[in-house]
């Protein structure tokens, strides 16, 4: 993996009539991680959605950071499908089905493979979403409050997965409240 660094220049984001932030510039190099901090509604999720290509910036540019794995608040798991069928579908779109078993083991969801997603708890869905990000083998991970709803053991597993990802040259941008187990992150405060 030889990813380009993520370079953000003079980014501004307006939602409705409200200006969330402007003149935002930062760089995330290979192996680095960035904490997005700030109160609710300060624009952390919007910034992540901008980086994921889901919103268009009001002004400014985003360079690099592609492909990316995105963990949002919604789980994107269909209630009637089994977890394995769901994760396999996304891995197929990413062309990384070979990486899926390792990713499922990393977030400890392999035992849930045959369970329809409607029977999963919110923490289990969160872990499945993280397994999807890991399996994508994307150099940039965009995580929106990745530890929300996770138990202590899963939080530790996530920390280990993020460390492995960074050691391999991967980049992480995460919206957080408090610590999520990233070693030595950059910090960006919004709002």
């Amino acid at each position: 993996m030889s990813p380009e660094p993520l370079i953000v220049t003079n980014l501004a984001c307006q939602r409705g009539n409200r200006l969330l932030f402007e003149n935002l510039s930062f760089t995330v190099n290979r192996g680095e991680a960035l904490h997005l901090e700030g109160p609710n509604g300060s624009g952390k999720s919007s910034l992540l959605r901008l980086l994921a290509g889901l919103l268009r910036p009001t002004s400014g540019t985003i360079h690099g950071g592609n492909p990316r794995g995105f963990l949002g608040h919604e789980t994107a798991l269909k209630p009637r499908m089994t977890l394995l069928a769901e994760l396999t579908h996304w891995a197929r779109l990413d062309g990384t089905t070979a990486a899926l078993p390792t990713a499922m083991a990393a977030m400890n969801v392999a035992a849930l493979a045959d369970i329809p997603c409607k029977h999963l708890s919110s923490g289990q869905r969160r872990r499945a979403g993280l397994a999807r990000v890991i399996a994508s083998s994307a150099p940039l991970w965009l995580l929106d409050e990745p530890t929300a709803g996770l138990d202590t053991a899963s939080t530790a597993r996530l920390a280990a997965a993020m460390a492995t990802h960074r050691a391999a040259g991967g980049m992480i941008v995460a919206a957080v409240h408090g610590d999520i187990g990233l070693a030595d992150p950059q910090r960006l405060r919004l709002g």
């Binding site: 290509g53 492909p67 949002g72 789980t75 996304w90 965009l142």
Partner: peptide
């Protein structure tokens, strides 16, 4: 509508599909 609500469209768009 379900794809919009459950984030499936977000996941597709994040992959530049």
């Amino acid at each position: 509508a379900p794809d919009l609500e459950d984030g499936t469209l977000d996941q597709l768009a994040a992959r530049d599909i």
